[in-house]
């Protein structure tokens, strides 16, 4: 009897650690965030739970531009990462030879420097009168008014640069573990090089691309460092607004409401995306 009871309890006991982890680090903070977003008050007098839903309406109408801009930036940056990252991953996987690990190391080498510092160094490099633009302007190769910083391009390029390895690595894994016999089989069955890529390599690497999108789109949309350092007043992203509400205005309910909306939007998006593709395909990159 006790044995049977133990057998029945076993699955619950086994999911307990994972369940606890999820509860402590995901469910409880989310509930706290949701509760905070419905508070009213200020930092000095304290916040009280008043179920003030109007914060959401008010914040969304005030900051929808930054919201939309974040998603547009994230989408463009992710597309750029695929365009740049796929060929890089392909080249390392198929032409890297014995130096594959060296190339991968080079790819993640910038990660040894902090994210913020790397971005600041770009700010330094691309400054209006900095070593690149300043020199070109002195030589008369660029008009004096030309600038890169504080443009949409600068922020999107920054996002692309900072998250690129997260796109390359899953695509590389998908390409690398592909049975090279399949490429031979395709060319044995009369496929030319273009058809081998289109009919075999590309479809089999799609799970890697999808994993890359998941890993880059979410942090790119919610990023604020690139817009802060490389952008100007017209490049403000939702992340900057949230940061500002928390740390400058100390308006915690408003910041919480914006965070909650952003997270919900991303979660729903990812959920729809995963359902549309089938989680099996997304997971197959890691599990083979």
């Amino acid at each position: 009897m006790t044995l049977r009871m133990r057998a029945r309890l076993a699955p619950y006991l086994l999911i307990l650690p994972g369940g606890l982890w999820l509860a402590i680090f995901f469910v409880i903070p989310i509930i706290a965030l949701l509760a905070l977003s419905l508070d009213t008050g200020n930092l000095i007098n304290g916040f009280r739970e008043t179920f003030h839903v109007a914060t959401y309406v008010n914040q969304l109408s005030q900051y929808h531009t930054q919201f939309i801009r974040s998603f547009v930036y994230g989408t463009i940056a992710t597309a750029a990462m695929i365009a740049i990252g796929y060929p890089v991953a392909y080249w390392i996987a198929f032409h890297g030879g014995t130096r594959k690990s060296a190339y991968l190391f080079l790819l993640i080498l910038p990660f040894f420097v902090t994210f913020v510092l790397r971005t600041v160094s770009w700010q330094f490099l691309l400054a209006d009168q900095g070593i690149v633009l300043g020199t070109l302007k002195n030589w008369g190769l660029l008009p004096q008014g030309f600038r890169v910083l504080s443009t949409n391009f600068a922020v999107i390029a920054g996002l692309t640069y900072n998250f690129l390895p997260y796109m390359v690595l899953p695509i590389y894994v998908a390409l690398e573990r592909m049975d090279k016999g399949l490429l031979e089989a395709a060319s044995d069955l009369y496929a030319n090089r273009r058809e081998v890529f289109r009919r075999v390599v590309l479809p089999l690497s799609i799970p890697g691309v999808f994993a890359g999108i998941l890993l880059t789109f979410v942090p790119a949309v919610s990023d604020y460092v690139n817009a802060e350092i490389l952008g100007g007043v017209n490049q403000v992203m939702i992340g900057n607004i949230i940061e500002n509400q928390y740390l400058v205005n100390n308006n915690y309910p408003q910041a919480a409401a914006l965070s909650f909306v952003l997270m919900a939007a991303l979660l729903i998006g990812v959920f729809i995306y995963a359902r549309a593709l089938g989680t099996e395909d997304i997971l197959s990159v890691s599990s083979g």
Partner: peptide, 20 residues
């Protein structure tokens, strides 16, 4: 002459079936 223009076909030891 590249494999795709040879009128012979190979049955691979690993089968090399297209999984997708």
């Amino acid at each position: 002459v590249p494999p795709n223009r040879r009128d012979v076909n190979l049955v691979f030891q690993s089968y090399a079936l297209f999984p997708h």
